[in-house]
Design a protein around this nucleic acid. Structure first.
Lengths: 208, 208
DNA sequence: TATAAAGTAGAGAATACTTTTTTTCTTGTC
DNA sequence: GACAAGAAAAAAAGTATTCTCTACTTTATA
């Protein structure tokens, strides 16, 4: 009997389809992106798309699920600094990563292909919440801070900032906006001594 | 020659179409909303839609343009308080106004039917910017506050908060989130004496 | 009653997503 | 190295829906 493993050509075309899908979803949204457009963008045909993915929904779902794995701060950190690093890394990486761009664009379309419990808002909120729990133990936060509310606020702000930045500058000034966000937010949530120690800038977002 | 004025039946059906359009756009986004669905929702036919509106784009454009006029705080105010009032009014009205809901949903789809200079981000940012200019003259803001940056930040946050609230609670907790936003933001932008005087709560959003 | 406004009904051409069929390529075995 | 078998991709077809436009009919006004 002839056993055949997955060919690496298949691995490549699958990656190409995910990339092309991310690009088109990022530009047109879910409903506006046609499978034909995606196949064309990848230089492939409809058959290739439907060989690798069960449906347009599944392709979109995989692209959204891929996201959190992509955002890994270049330098180790904890607590408040880690929260800062995650947002900055996300902002810088969003400048040229089609998958992250698609994730941001599909935020509102998610209900069409993602089960309610897995939406990206909650994913990001959980990540930040853990950082703030650590920050709380390290006494970096003001007394009585509602860390759940703060985590949600930051995710909201980043989501909105991405949209503004997309429309006004092609996202180029997103990192700057994220940094501004922290400058305005910090006095309200962190103790001054902890806020003073935080590091920002490009180093935090894409390594030195 | 027989002159005939616009019949008020036409006024009613036009309003019904705008409402139906807003509902469907709000649920499906621009590309996902079909003109057929809109006509069905209004209990009318395709012909009626195209009699009143040149195209699907035009209908969406009108719905987005309608927005700022809809948000009028119930009580007169100025400066910082007016900024607060506008955001709260917007949040409360968004709970049950299909046109505002559509405006929020279409934020990312705008490039498909709105000329770049008229996008809703800039509309709202301008409104808040004027409030902050007044606030600055009244010495409500901290020295050296970048009011342009703050205005953008607030619009971003409201945009993002609407999306989170939509997914997690059907928007029910949006006013609460907006109020939380101000509580966290104010220490960073306003002088304590001015912040202390601000009023929040449902009264500010939909009258007493 | 005549005229224009407002709506209905339906057609057309394009495009949508998906499935099925056919071809090409790759791999393992002899 | 040739051959067989299955994986990968192309090609094509199917079904449904898209947006828009063009008659045609109803309704309201003067």
């Amino acid at each position: 009997m002839t056993r055949t493993v997955k060919q690496d050509r298949a691995v490549r075309t699958r990656a190409a389809l995910i990339r092309a899908g991310a690009e088109v979803f990022g530009e047109c949204g879910f409903a506006g992106a046609s499978v034909t457009k995606i196949a064309d963008r990848a230089g492939l045909t409809l058959g290739a798309v439907y060989f690798h993915f069960k449906s347009k929904e599944e392709l979109a779902r995989l692209i959204v699920a891929e996201q959190p794995k992509l955002v890994v701060p270049p330098q180790p950190s904890q607590g408040l600094q880690h929260a800062v690093d995650v947002t900055l890394t996300w902002a810088y990486q969003l400048l040229d990563d089609p998958v992250l761009i698609a994730g941001a664009r599909l935020v509102m379309d998610q209900d069409q292909f993602v089960p309610p419990e897995e939406n990206s808002h909650q994913q990001w909120t959980q990540i930040l919440l853990r950082d703030f729990q650590v920050a709380e133990r390290r006494r970096e936060l003001r007394a009585g801070a509602d860390i759940q509310a703060i985590a949600r606020l930051i995710v909201s702000t980043c989501t909105g900032a991405q949209m503004h930045a997309h429309m006004e500058s092609g996202r180029a000034d997103l990192p700057h906006r994220v940094e501004e966000m922290w400058q305005v937010l910090l006095p309200g949530i962190a103790v001054p001594s902890a806020a003073k120690k935080l590091e920002f800038g490009e180093d935090r977002g894409r390594g030195r």
